[in-house]
Design a protein around this nucleic acid. Structure first.
Lengths: 376, 376
DNA sequence: TTGTAGGCGTTATCAT
DNA sequence: ATGATAACGCCTACAA
């Protein structure tokens, strides 16, 4: 979930085409200040009714309005192409119909899936979604929540990795409390770890599935390719170790390869290569890193799964686009976004607190894992 | 840019873990109506000044305020953890500091990159970004623009594929005109085609680069793997054909394989396979589909680039994660988002019209293309 | 340097 | 069934 795919530019040639000349486009010039748009007052005047009546019609108020009057208002609105000013409406309603989803990096396929899930439910129910990238930076995250508070977002969904426990951590909690104190909803999305999420999946289940699968194939010495140090790093290592130890095996530190954001896939592959054939299988904390590793390993002449079984995490699109197709544990990414948004709405119109939910994960067996070779 | 990666679940086994039990979380219960947040009035009262003075301090107004008074206001604001209400501010300013980026599907890595680029610049300049997925559905796009108009978004950046020319098309244009009429900015992002984009790259350049590269390697019969029918489909085919014909070659219809959204990568591979060895090279309109095709081809025993050279499009992360690494044409995706946002800001505070820009594309040679084999 | 009055576009309250 | 009036929280004149 955390490990953004390594992008290694092994390009040997660089041919550039295209220019950067700029010329005045043909668009219409616009005033710096936004011209007055048509308001309820305009509609009311044209329909020959009071603003109040126009409002009642346009806002679908339960207040009774004569059929004929309603028709006239509707027609006037249509002729004027009137669109209610949500800003003004938000001011009086203390509700903006805007929610936010905070992720580390939208460019990470996992994050995009979560955001998409949020958007799915939001669109269906008339909410707009503001997306914020924190780049794993807690300070940036604090800045975002503060801003969201300023814009009176109805809910903030957090899908960022657990923040490092720095001083910013306290600032963040304070901001979040402020949001909640003001009636805003906070929903945490992601794997259940030290701080449980509201819409979650079990990190332990994930590794039980992966490890169990490899164990069943006869693998006894399993390595772990973990993402960059930040966020869920340690939690993932711990969960994996627990799962491995539960089967009577061990995950010695030297079998844990940490992939720094800067490390190249080639360097990773070299590190892993040094572990084989002692290690016969590997679990990567993300399909993206698994795919990158696999390609680098293949470039070094290693055959997968013959010489090393690889299991990814996430079941991202890339998992089925590589060769061999990646065995992986499917994470309810998009679904968690949908459910998170649903939970937020429940609180918003029910006044209840956020209902906690644990979504199931699933093992997806493809072609990157195989029975361990008896001898070599 | 359009072709979302095919996700082919070749999973042979499905083991599920985790439950969906739901229990009341420990969060604090919140009133349905948002409690009154601290306003300027509160700050003013606590600082012993008028609301106006407090406003001047908090909004960094150029109006002079005594140093001591300013200090008191700032302190009161700090103690109250005051955050200015952007909704109210937006109502009077006729500016919301909100922009929107519309894409077909955020889950498409290319779209995510564009959105990320927008977000990069937006965050730096105090704007919030609303993301909307249209799923290539013009009606949904119209609905979105209408809503954005209602929420008085300062700008709408369009990165969706060219809409089909249906009846909705006219509706869309009308909505866009309304946005512009109201002082909103519209910026089109994407390849230059029939309707030129404001921040663009040359589709023709892209194919010239790809075709030129393959031609230089000796390839004379090149196939094209095009995305699902919608959007830039035809435009891509045309541009590719032009590029090929410019070199004295041809792109007969039978060498154009269209990938329906539902078509499996395996089906694609079969279709391509039938073209070889007559065809010695292939260009895919997206790295994602190139990667999927390559994996499927490899699964059928084909060797790449020995038997078929493959050139992708985009230089998405996946391009360097597959084996062999994909030769591709880099598209200025993230950059187009940044520049698009910049252009919007220029219009917003300059009152000028959108400056058109063409960003350069670049050939990135990796390992999926090789000189054509002399004989076979 | 500070404060008062009015209004941004809507909805809610209270008449009529 | 309809309408006048008062907020919502802030900013911009226009005084003092």
């Amino acid at each position: 979930m955390r490990d953004a795919g390594q992008k290694e530019n092994t390009g040997r040639t660089g041919v550039t085409k295209g220019r950067t000349d700029e010329f005045q486009g043909g668009g219409s010039t616009v005033d710096a200040a936004r011209g007055r748009l048509t308001s309820l007052a305009d509609v009311a005047r044209r329909a020959g009714v009071s603003i109040t009546t126009a409002s009642r019609v346009m806002s679908a108020s339960p207040h009774p309005v004569a059929a004929d009057t309603r028709r006239r208002v509707l027609q006037a609105a249509d002729e004027l192409d009137f669109e209610p000013n949500l800003v003004a409406r938000g001011l009086v309603a203390h509700r903006t119909s805007m929610v936010a989803i905070l992720v580390d990096d939208l460019t990470d396929p996992a994050a995009a899936l979560v955001a998409r899930g949020v958007e799915d439910d939001a669109f269906e129910h008339g909410f707009s979604v503001v997306v914020g990238d924190t780049d794993g930076d807690t300070a940036k995250q604090v800045a975002y929540v503060r801003k969201l508070r300023a814009m009176r977002a109805d809910a903030v969904l957090l899908a960022t990795a657990a923040a490092d426990g720095g001083a910013n951590r306290e600032d963040l909690m304070r901001q979040l409390r402020q949001v909640e104190g003001g009636g805003g909803v906070i929903v945490r999305l992601g794997p259940n770890g030290a701080t449980p999420s509201d819409v979650a999946w079990s990190r332990r289940d994930v590794f039980d599935l992966a490890v169990g699968h490899l164990h069943a194939l006869g693998h006894r010495r399993i390595a772990l390719l973990a993402g960059h140090g930040r966020g869920g790093h340690t939690a993932a290592v711990d969960a994996c170790r627990s799962a491995i130890e539960a089967l009577g095996l061990a995950l010695p530190p030297k079998h844990v390869v940490t992939m720094g954001a800067a490390d190249s896939a080639a360097a990773m592959a070299q590190a892993i290569d040094a572990l084989t054939p002692e290690v016969t299988a590997l679990i990567a904390t993300s399909d993206a890193s698994a795919a990158a590793l696999m390609a680098a390993l293949q470039a070094r002449g290693r055959r997968i799964p013959a010489e090393l079984s690889i299991c990814g995490l996430g079941d991202l699109p890339v998992a089925s686009m590589v060769s061999p197709a990646l065995t992986t544990v499917r994470l309810p990414l998009r679904e968690s976004g949908r459910v998170g948004m649903l939970r937020a709405r429940e609180v918003l119109d029910g006044g209840v607190s956020v209902k906690r939910t644990e979504l199931p994960v699933e093992l997806v067996v493809r072609d990157s894992t195989a029975p361990v070779r008896e001898a070599f």
